[in-house]
Design a protein around this nucleic acid. Structure first.
Length: 288
DNA sequence: GACGCGTGGTT
DNA sequence: TAACCAAGCGT
């Protein structure tokens, strides 16, 4: 099942792929690794400028490893999930000390680095080193759910059947190209909200479309509100630390969030997570 | 397996 | 306009 998907999707990709800098043939493994971490839960258009700045500033793992972790957090800007900046910094140091500055090439080695889970390890092994892995991101899972399983959305968490299906579809030749092509189809055509089936190269074979695009019937997908959460509070506090070069008096942090109990909890959380550092006299800064 | 973790554009 | 969504990970 589904082997008929390959040629249409690969042909579509050849015509419609975006020219993203981390896909160019001269992109280094480090450049690809940085892009993959930045792209976790983050749209391409927001990643592009930050990635470019990082590549200019820190073109190698050793360059980033030579900086204090707080500089990675500072130059993360407002990308979101700033622990990823800390993870990338820790990756850079591990790569420098344990791999002589060269990004490791195997899934198992990559998987052990901080912030690199199943998806990112498979993506880097595949896209940077040409290895054959099933790259199961949200786009690929959605495309396969629709085209093969006939359902609007994949399960909340990746299942064994999904993995088996993705592995069964891996082509003998050029698995990396296949992976990025399916991802791109999900990103540009087989989108979550309003899929453009009229532009889809596999519309004629898509189980979901042939079934009349039945609505999702799985469990309710909860979306938590952001306003007033610890998350928002942490973001406010970290923005103050990021934008101030050097020590920040606690009063400056108190000023950006009214609820003292929540504010203290969030600040403690940032310190616990290594995103902030307590200095003497109740001042704070990014980690050194 | 469910939850916490940022941010901003889109509908 | 509140909710959804965007190349997930760690606990």
């Amino acid at each position: 099942m589904g082997t008929g998907l390959h040629a249409p999707i690969l042909d579509w990709y050849a015509e419609n792929a975006r020219d993203l800098p981390w896909r160019r043939t001269d992109a280094s493994p480090w450049a690809i690794l940085v892009s993959e971490i930045m792209l976790q839960q983050t749209p391409v258009v927001r990643v592009l400028p930050i990635w470019a700045e990082w590549m200019e500033r820190w073109p190698t793992p050793a360059a980033l490893a030579a900086e204090p972790p707080g500089e990675a957090v500072r130059h993360w800007g407002r990308l979101g999930y700033p622990r990823r900046a800390l993870n990338l910094h820790a990756c850079a140091r591990a790569i420098t000390t344990e791999y002589e500055g060269q990004v490791p090439s195997t899934y198992d080695e990559l998987r052990k680095l901080p912030g690199i889970g199943d998806y990112t390890a498979a993506a880097v092994a595949s896209f940077a080193f040409g290895h054959s892995h099933a790259v199961l991101d949200t786009n690929v899972r959605r495309v396969l759910a629709r085209a093969v399983r006939g359902e609007e959305y994949p399960p909340k968490a990746t299942t064994t059947p999904e993995r088996k299906l993705a592995e069964s579809l891996l082509p003998a030749l050029d698995a990396p190209r296949w992976g990025v092509a399916v991802m791109e189809l999900g990103a540009l055509v087989c989108t979550a909200r309003a899929p453009r089936c009229a532009d889809c190269p596999v519309a004629a074979a898509c189980a979901w479309r042939l079934a009349g695009r039945p609505a999702y019937e799985g469990p309710e997908r909860r979306g938590q509100t952001y306003a007033g959460t610890d998350r928002q509070c942490r973001g406010r506090l970290l923005a103050v630390l990021r934008d101030a070069h050097g020590a920040v008096p606690k009063a400056a942090l108190d000023a950006v969030w009214a609820d003292a109990v929540q504010r203290e909890r969030a600040l403690d959380g940032l310190v616990t997570d290594g995103l902030a550092e307590v200095l003497a006299e109740g001042t704070y800064r990014l980690p050194s």
